[in-house]
Design a protein around this nucleic acid. Structure first.
Length: 258
DNA sequence: ATGCCTAATGCAATTAGA
């Protein structure tokens, strides 16, 4: 079973790209971030035509997440991250699919730092860590997949010295990611590619993709029962080279049957 | 330190991204 995450950067502007990739790669489950539309604006028909069932948690203009499941019916378990009823941003969706619990997330960017957006990022991260603890305690096969907006280590940044004050690489943000991992999650891409320079995001600026000036900020975290089934994890980096594509590349794991 | 590029809104220029 292949499970992917992709920050699509606008589903309406990216529908053709998404359909092309889905038809080529045929992933079983896809977590999308930054759909940038309300639920009613999501182009369901074109994606359902490829055999996918869809759960969305949309928002006008910004943010918005979705889960696609090919030939399976996702059973939604959460819309929105628990822990703050006043949080109106659509950044979390969770569903049970084929006995696996999938949390799709879009963690706040947090820039500029310091500031209210950075504070919101840290609070959101704390809520995620609280929720993740409960997921692990369930003992179920669980995955957290999405755009975490964190480079966990210097290996995950093309020029780490330029990013030390940035909200994506700040010490307190890396520490939060480390706290999350320490609960018992396996970073699938880093586990399959130890010590390797491997990026999931390339800025539109300055021809970043061609220069391999990227960041690793999209992550797939596996609970122990899923980590035992990990076969492969890769980035479809070539998709970043397509015309009119997202600045993030699709990132995925292959799991053997449970 | 800032712009470089791109999307959404809405039709110009701003907000946001990372």
């Amino acid at each position: 079973m292949r499970i992917a995450t992709w920050n699509i950067n606008g589903i309406k502007a990216r529908l053709e790209i998404l359909v092309t990739w889905l038809a080529q790669e045929k992933p079983d489950i896809v977590c999308l971030q930054e759909i940038k539309t309300v639920d009613e604006g999501f182009p369901r028909a074109e994606i359902e035509a490829l055999g996918y069932n869809i759960e969305t948690h949309g928002q006008k203009s910004w943010n918005g997440v979705a889960i696609l499941a090919k030939g399976r019916d996702p059973v939604e378990t959460h819309r929105g991250l628990p822990g703050d009823p006043d949080d109106v941003q659509s950044r979390y969706i969770e569903a049970a699919i084929d006995g696996v619990l999938i949390g799709g997330l879009y963690l706040p960017n947090g820039n500029p730092r310091p500031g209210p957006k950075f504070d919101y990022k840290l609070r959101w991260f704390d809520r995620l860590i609280d929720h993740a603890a409960g997921l692990l305690a369930s003992g179920l096969p669980v995955m957290l997949a999405g755009d975490f907006n964190v480079m966990p280590t210097a290996l995950d940044v093309y020029k780490p010295e330029r990013w030390t004050e940035d909200a994506l690489f700040a010490p307190e943000v890396r520490a939060a990611f480390a706290r999350l991992l320490a609960q018992g999650w396996t970073d699938a891409l880093r586990t399959i590619h130890p010590g390797e320079t491997i990026y999931t995001f390339f800025d539109y600026f300055r021809n970043a993709y061609a220069r391999n000036a990227g960041l690793r900020i999209d992550h797939l975290l596996l609970s122990a029962p899923l980590a035992a089934r990990l076969v492969d994890a890769q980035v479809d980096a070539h998709v970043r080279g397509w015309e009119k594509t997202s600045d993030h590349a699709p990132t995925w794991v292959e799991l053997r049957d449970g």
